[in-house]
Every structure is written in structure tokens, then in C-alpha cells.
Design a protein around this nucleic acid. Structure first.
Lengths: 250, 250
DNA sequence: ACGAGGCTTTGCGGTGGATCAAGGCCGCTC
DNA sequence: GAGCGGCCTTGATCCACCGCAAAGCCTCGT
């Protein structure tokens, strides 16, 4: 949902040939992500136009959709799976600006160059639009631009929340706020559940919260031992949301 | 330039009667802030319409333009002076999301409620637009909306820079990056100079950088003693920009 | 000129989280 | 099913920054 752009680190290689391209059989009207994505701004008849401009694109775990500082020649809508949006400091320090979930739009800022790298946390399905095509569509559909602007504004508010979190919260508050925030995002995109999936690793959480991997791990085990959460494979179960919310001091 | 909204702390009281309202004699075409503000998206003939919708509004040091959580019934363009954009945690911890300078637009997100408080750091002159009026204008002028969206996108990128700064940088890097960033913003709005004005106090800088007032003070004196900057009344003089940029690791 | 209040600087411990260093727990592949 | 590699946890120590306290300094009003 955040801006985009990117250059990765590791052994993550964008292998264009590995990405299956071209529309699959499913039309926009039946897209699972449509109700929660920008596309919801378009009426059903308009979806035909959108469909003509779009390409499906899949990624495997670890592949980069785009890299920091690359020219932003396309924008994407996430349909399935999740990605991490990473920014690198010249000296190698890494920060994760956020995680993109189904329905999130990558390229909100329509910037010349991607400000972050987008790397798949698992199998990912996206809908790709060429930059020119999408700009032309925005030109023709003011309500799409308005919807995009509204999303960008919402993203800006989230970014502010994150700034406050990074600047003024303790390690425990950070971890708890992260879990609750993720839960709320899942709830908004449909499946709400007591169990919060964590598709990212501990290091990713740490790089998102401005902590080290050890601190994140310690805080999680502390919350577990206090019976506020239960650590399960692939995620956590929130046992006492009320008390967690008090801890997050939001 | 950031979002807006607000509820302050201290003895800052919005005294509506203290704000001189109504257009002064100067028309939009001669506005000093026009070249660097959203208004630059409008052609000279269109400025008449803009002018009809706008009201000048002045603030004294410490007065709030709006408060966190207030309904966002207006948007503002800063013409002269500077403001701090503050967000408060329920327990009193404060974070300053940014500082608005001449040319900055407050209310980019067009949100229902202000996300921050905007408080004048000194005498301030703003241009006020009613929310409804401005929305109607956006409806009528797509290029104004596009300009606003571009600004919001740029703001989002800045917010990401700030997140990286808050999450992954040392106290010294934070202070240096802040000084350099402020210098660049001044340069963009016209008057560039070796001397960087600091209209905000040390506590404000601390609350912006996620530090304490003592740490900010210590870093500044350390930079001063290293002859990288010179602390002068009301600001600092940058003595060795090259070395400062290396320190900021940007 | 003087005094008061607010802001800034400086010194001195204290501490939350970083850093360093083992292990432990999978889920692979062979 | 043994061995390997990646991730996660846990413990011990360290240090950058915090928090408190006391001056110092500047501005403003009288």
C-alpha cells in the first residue's frame, strides 16, 4: 500500500521469465481483491477497459517485483500474497517501510523512480499496469484519480502513525502495535481471526519497527509467557486483545 | 506540507477573534508563496476564482491553526512563517510529524478529521479555503487535483525518509540530516544561505527526531566544537556541508 | 538596570535495547 | 535418518541515549 521502487539485497533476483504473464481466465469483475482495491472505484462496464490494460504477474517467495531506484515504469495491484517494501541505506542498514497485502496498490506516488524495493514474502499474484497506460486512464477517469488520492492520503496518515511509533514508543509497544495493526488490516480485507498470520520473518519485523531481531524475539516470548499472545507456527494467536490494546497505548 | 488536524497541549488557545480575516489588498497573482505552492498549478485567469474562495488568516506565535481530531472543515496554504505539526499520544508523549514552511499545503489528505495539530512557531500568514469550496474547485479543475496528488505523493516519500531516519539512524545522524533537510527546503523556496534558520526550539527538534532535548543540545554542541556548524542566535551556520553530508549517510 | 521566567547547556548516573555468542528447532536434501 | 542450513530463542555484556538536576543565558517587562 505504500509507495514503491526498488533495489534489493540478498540473492533475490528478478527473473522476468519466471513470472507468468498475460491475463488468466478470471476477469476483473470476479477478482477477489477488487472490493478492497482501487478498482472498486470503477463501475462494472469500465472494468473492461481496465482489463485490457492489465497483465497478471506472479512471483515466488523472495523474488522482487521491483527495486529501489529503478525507473517506475509500472504500477501494481496486489491480488494474493504479501510483499515487504524495503529501503536500504548506503551502508547496508535496512528499513522496511511496510508490508503490502491483497488489495494494496503499489505505486501510489506515481514517482519517477521507485523509492523502495518490493519483495515477495511468499507466492504472490499481482495485476500490472504500464505507467503510461495507467496515467492515461487516470486522465480519463477523474473518479479513479480521486480514489487514488484518497488512498494516498490514508497511506500518509498510516505513515504518520508509524513515525510516532518509531520515534516515541518502547520496544514492547512497537511489537504489540504491530500485531494489532496487522490484525486490523486482515479484518478489513475480509478474513478476521483471533490468529494473526505473520508471513514475514522476525528480522523483517525488526527492520520494520526499528529494533533488532533479538529484541523482537524477546518481546514476543515475554508476551507469550504473560499469556497475552500464543506463539503458533506461522503467526500468533491474540489471547487478550483488550490488555494488548492498553499496552499499545494507542 | 504534511497532513493536518489538531489538538494542542500547553496554553495555546485558538482565539478566532485574534485572527485577522478577509483578503488583504494583495491578489493571488502577486502572492510570494505562489511559485512554490499548489496554486502554481492554476493559470493566471483561474486565480480569480481561487481568490474568491480564499481568506487570509494570521496567527501569532503559539496559536493553533487547527487541532488534532477536530473536523477538517478547511485547508490552508502557508504564505509566511512556519508551523509545527504535532501529534499527541494519550499518555502525553508528543511527536512532531514535520514543520510547515511557506508554500506548504495543510490538509493534503483531505481527511475528515485533522490527524495533527498545527501550531505557529512565530507570526504566520495563511490562505484559508473552506473544505466544500475547495473540494468543488478540485472537481472542476482536474489539473489542480493532479498537482495535489503529486504533492501528496512527494509528502509520502518524505514520510518514508523520516521513518528510515527514526528507525535506523543514530542521534548524530538524525540531527545532521535534519539540518541538511531544512537547508534544502529553504533553498527550494527561494532564499538559500549558509545560515539555516531554526524557528523551532530544541524541544521541538527533539520531538521531531525521536530524541530528548538534552541529546539534541549535546549533538549540536558536539558539531559546533568539531567546527562542522556554528551555533548562532536563531539558527546554525553550516561550516562544512560536505563533511556533514558524509555524517548524515544519506 | 533589574529581576523573573523560559529555554538551553552541561554533568552524572541509570537503563533499555544493541551487540556478541551460543544453542535449539525445524524442514530440507541426499 | 543423518547431516545441513536457515531461522529463532536465550543468555551475558555493553553502550548510546535517557532522565534528573543544576547552572547559565536571553528576552521581556517594569
Amino acid at each position: 500500500m505504500l509507495v514503491d521502487t526498488g533495489s534489493g539485497d540478498r540473492a533475490i533476483e528478478r527473473s522476468a521469465q519466471a513470472c507468468h504473464r498475460g491475463r488468466s481466465a478470471t476477469p476483473c469483475a470476479e477478482c477477489a481483491a477488487r472490493p478492497v482495491s482501487v478498482c472498486s472505484a470503477l463501475a462494472v462496464p469500465e472494468l473492461r477497459e481496465l482489463e485490457a490494460l492489465s497483465q497478471h504477474l506472479t512471483l515466488d517467495k523472495g523474488q522482487a517485483l521491483f527495486r529501489q531506484d529503478e525507473p517506475g515504469d509500472a504500477v501494481y495491484n496486489v491480488i494474493e500474497g504479501s510483499l515487504r517494501l524495503t529501503r536500504l541505506l548506503p551502508d547496508g542498514r535496512r528499513h522496511i517501510m511496510g508490508f503490502a497485502l491483497p488489495g494494496d496498490f503499489l505505486g501510489l506516488a506515481l514517482a519517477e523512480r521507485h523509492a523502495v524495493s518490493a519483495e515477495a514474502l511468499g507466492p504472490v499474484l499481482t495485476c500490472r499496469f504500464g505507467r503510461e497506460d495507467f496515467a492515461a486512464l487516470l486522465e480519463a477517469k477523474p473518479h479513479l484519480l480521486r480514489s487514488l488520492h484518497a488512498r494516498t492520503g490514508a497511506e500518509l496518515m498510516l505513515a504518520q502513525d508509524q513515525m510516532l511509533l518509531l520515534g516515541r514508543r518502547t520496544a514492547e509497544e512497537k511489537v504489540v502495535a504491530f500485531l494489532l495493526g496487522l490484525r486490523n488490516r486482515y479484518a478489513r480485507t475480509g478474513r478476521s481471526s483471533v490468529t494473526v498470520e505473520l508471513p514475514m520473518g522476525r528480522q523483517d519485523m525488526a527492520d520494520h519497527l526499528g529494533l533488532t531481531i533479538e529484541t523482537v524475539s524477546r518481546m514476543l516470548t515475554r508476551l507469550d509467557r504473560a499469556h497475552l499472545i500464543l506463539i503458533v507456527p506461522g503467526g500468533v494467536r491474540l489471547l487478550d486483545v483488550e490488555r494488548l490494546e492498553r499496552l499499545a497505548a494507542s
